[in-house]
Amino acid sequence: MRALLTPLAGAAGFVALWWLATWLRVADPVLLPSPAETWRDTARALQDGPLWHDLWKTVWRTVQAFVIASAIGVPLGLALGARERAYRAVEFVVDFFRSTPASALFPLFLILFGVGEGTKVAVAAFGAALVILFNAAYGVINARRTRVLAARVMGAGEARILWDVLLWEALPQILVGMRAGISLALVIVVVAEMFIGSTDGLGQRVIVAQSLFESGLMYGVIFLAGALGYLLNLLFLVAEKRLVHWGGK
């Protein structure tokens, strides 16, 4: 109970500070509306505005990007990790593009995929795939050697070892990569929704609300995007705990 109460108290404190700031008129009310106003505007947009649709579009794009990224990153990472020399050969390239801000790649992806749905998903998938690949490869590289030897002694061939041992040994690291990957995909999708010919999505809604001086709604959408990111992260933390039951033991 206490574990839940402390963060709730922190959140309540944050809202109280916010409320105090508006009450003291620290900023122009047009720029900083009160918590109550933000809540009212956001609830209205959810009820009869396009906000549910925007939220759904952002989730759907992020999930698509994540699924594509996992489908590429996990098998490729496992295969490269199993051949460490092959991984060392591509490590620099992976690291380089992993460190490149994905937003810098927007123009390139616009040329490749055109102005549309595909581009947003593709950029996000690209960024997330590199993170997942990197983690999967390291999971395999750091696999306990004794377990690999044990499987070999018991007559497992290389393919069997990859499937029966390395995949499991890498699973904790793969899930860490997936968690980082889906967070990154969300970031890229929201930015892409702002700048790559969009008509919907949370990113689009934030920037439209800002340009129309609908500050209450703007803050609301920001919090909605934050809640989405937080929930996705939480989902993967729970999945890690349940799937990797042997972790840390």
Partner: peptide, 16 residues
């Protein structure tokens, strides 16, 4: 057909 018992059982058994 051989059997092998490793010194470090923690790292030799499959915990999954």
């Amino acid at each position: 057909r051989i059997g092998y018992v490793f010194q470090n059982y923690r790292e030799a058994l499959f915990p999954w």
